[in-house]
């Protein structure tokens, strides 16, 4: 009898504990891309405080995050390509859900958004993409930690982290990417990828400088792609007319380096440099490539001719 009473008492105590625990925020163990120990303690405390304060005034933002379905099986099973993908949903929610997204990425895996390893990985990628385009410097410590000490070390995750840092684009963010873009750095490729999104003349010049160094084709390809992404920011005039002058400088620097890569290298480097040249869409590209035919061999000359012929519709007219 007394044993039974004790058992009941214990049960009630456990239930009470459970209620208390569910009412309080769970202790942070880590999000879908980061073990919480990878963040400096001060950053964790600051982030927890920001999240707590924001949750008090904006509970709807956290609810909004929970509506995302594309990374859970119930959501993606019916998608045309039935693999976990919630990038569009997360990005569409907008920068107002930055703190819920940082919480999910770094502090606590959100319930119901992703279960399997593949789903969590996809959620991590989507969070990095959405956090990146929010361009909020508050996200830098978390994204930096994902790049440097994240739980997932695969090339794709690191590239998304690098790109997010580039999109945040503060001096600190760019300095971090520049540092890791040095030859031999283990994070060189994601750093180079990220630099393409840090839209400045300084970044362009840094990438152009990298392009002139001897290095593996994989690295050259990444540099070419980043120069294309960078130039693209101005090519379609999304930066507005006030940025045209700066854009012209960036595109000119990038196109010169890309044309050199195109004529001097074959294979994937040439292909990527060609695409990047089209992204830069600099008037004069046709004349520049034609003038550089003499620098290359017969294959290179043929590649120049084919490129100019195939993509004539996308190459702007040369200035008179």
């Amino acid at each position: 009898m007394s044993d039974r009473k004790n058992w009941r008492r214990s049960g009630r105590a456990l239930a009470l504990l459970g209620t208390l625990l569910s009412a309080a925020p769970a202790l942070a163990a880590g999000g879908v891309a980061l073990d919480v120990r990878a963040l400096p303690a001060g950053e964790v405390q600051a982030l927890e405080r920001d999240i707590r304060d924001f949750k008090a005034t904006h509970p709807g933002a956290f609810e909004a995050l929970r509506t995302v379905r594309g990374c859970s099986e119930a959501g993606y099973r019916a998608a045309r390509n039935p693999v976990p993908n919630c990038s569009r949903e997360l990005r569409r929610l907008g920068p107002g859900v930055l703190l819920p997204m940082l919480e999910a990425l770094a502090l606590r895996e959100p319930a119901g958004l992703a279960s399997s390893e593949a789903e969590k990985r996809a959620l991590g990628h989507a969070l990095l993409q959405a956090i990146g385009v929010a361009r909020d410097p508050r996200a830098l410590p978390v994204v930096e930690a994902v790049l440097l000490r994240g739980a997932r070390r695969d090339a794709e995750t690191l590239a998304y982290a690098g790109e997010a840092i580039g999109l945040i684009g503060t001096d600190t963010a760019v300095a971090l990417l520049v540092r890791h873009s040095a030859a031999g750095d283990a994070l060189r490729l994601p750093a180079i990828a990220g630099l393409g999104y840090a839209r400045s003349l300084k970044t362009a010049r840094h990438l152009v400088g990298l392009a002139t160094q001897p290095q593996p084709p994989e690295d050259l390809r990444a540099i070419a792609r980043s120069l294309g992404v960078l130039s693209s920011s101005w090519a379609w005039r999304a930066m507005g007319p006030k940025a045209d002058s700066l854009g012209q400088q960036v595109r000119a620097e990038a196109a010169g380096a890309l044309a050199t890569l195109f004529v001097l290298h074959g294979g994937d480097v040439r292909e990527e440099a060609g695409k990047a040249l089209l992204m830069a869409a600099l008037p004069g590209t046709r004349a520049m490539l034609t003038s550089m035919r003499s620098l290359t061999d017969a294959d290179g000359a043929r590649a120049v001719d084919k490129f100019l012929s195939d993509y004539k519709r996308l190459l702007p007219a040369d200035p008179l």
Binding site: V133, R199, S232, A235, W236, R237, A238, K275, M279
Partner: peptide, 16 residues
């Protein structure tokens, strides 16, 4: 839409 540098970049990549 036109000032969305990300969308314009993605669209330009798709165009290529």
């Amino acid at each position: 839409t036109l000032a969305d540098v990300d969308l314009m970049q993605w669209s330009q990549e798709a165009e290529i």
